[in-house]
Amino acid sequence: MFKITYEPIAVNELIEHVLHNNVGAIQTFIGTVREMTHGKQTLRLEYHAYESMAVKMLERIGKEIEGKWPGTTVAITHRLGTLAIQEIAVVIAVSSPHRQASHEATSYAIERIKEVVPIWKKEYWADGSFWVGDQLEQNAYHEKEGHHG
């Protein structure tokens, strides 16, 4: 189960997907929208994606995990659109016969999502500034548009 959605994520649905008779551990990672980032107050986040490619890349990450940690089952859902503080942006559920594999695989999954899945985050801060991708992109935007700050 690898999904991109605009709806709130049902965590239990992912857990049910990875639960089966040979599971000794299920680890979940739940990424939420936090209020403070780099000392700035966040008002909201917007997630955008190349949706069909994002799903294919999530599936690829699942296959990578199942290859590296035999016996694991993976489910990943990432939310798109505008998210408020405390809303869930991403859920990863990994089951395995033993806890260490599910723990390692969950950490691997979130890092790979950041590396290869075409999902972009725009973070809006209370001071009127925003962040897209990395600081260089924000600076390039300000220079291009004649904005400063």
Score class of each variant (00 low, 15 high):
4 I>C: 12
4 I>Y: 01
4 I>Q: 02
5 T>W: 08
6 Y>G: 04
7 E>G: 03
9 I>V: 15
9 I>L: 03
9 I>F: 15
10 A>S: 14
10 A>Y: 04
14 L>A: 09
14 L>W: 14
14 L>G: 05
15 I>L: 09
15 I>G: 04
17 H>E: 09
18 V>Q: 10
19 L>H: 06
20 H>K: 09
20 H>C: 10
23 V>A: 13
23 V>E: 02
24 G>E: 12
25 A>G: 09
26 I>V: 15
28 T>H: 07
28 T>S: 09
28 T>Q: 11
30 I>S: 02
31 G>C: 04
32 T>G: 03
36 M>H: 13
36 M>N: 11
36 M>L: 05
39 G>R: 11
40 K>I: 02
40 K>P: 02
41 Q>I: 10
41 Q>F: 00
45 L>M: 02
46 E>I: 15
46 E>V: 15
48 H>P: 00
49 A>W: 04
51 E>G: 00
54 A>G: 04
55 V>H: 06
55 V>K: 13
56 K>V: 08
58 L>G: 10
64 E>S: 06
65 I>N: 07
66 E>H: 01
67 G>I: 05
69 W>V: 05
69 W>T: 02
74 V>H: 06
76 I>K: 07
76 I>V: 15
76 I>A: 08
77 T>M: 12
78 H>Y: 10
80 L>Q: 04
81 G>R: 15
81 G>T: 05
83 L>G: 06
83 L>W: 01
85 I>F: 00
87 E>L: 03
89 A>C: 09
90 V>K: 00
92 I>D: 13
92 I>M: 13
94 V>W: 03
96 S>N: 01
97 P>K: 10
98 H>W: 00
99 R>W: 06
99 R>F: 05
100 Q>L: 11
100 Q>A: 09
101 A>D: 15
101 A>L: 06
103 H>R: 14
105 A>N: 12
107 S>D: 13
107 S>L: 14
107 S>P: 10
108 Y>R: 01
110 I>F: 12
111 E>V: 14
112 R>D: 11
112 R>H: 10
113 I>W: 00
116 V>H: 05
117 V>C: 15
119 I>G: 03
119 I>V: 11
119 I>T: 01
123 E>F: 05
125 W>P: 00
126 A>Q: 14
129 S>M: 06
130 F>Y: 13
132 V>H: 08
133 G>P: 07
134 D>T: 07
134 D>L: 12
134 D>S: 14
137 E>W: 14
142 H>K: 13
142 H>A: 09
142 H>W: 15
143 E>G: 00
145 E>C: 15
145 E>M: 15
145 E>H: 11
145 E>N: 13
147 H>M: 04
148 H>L: 04
149 G>I: 07
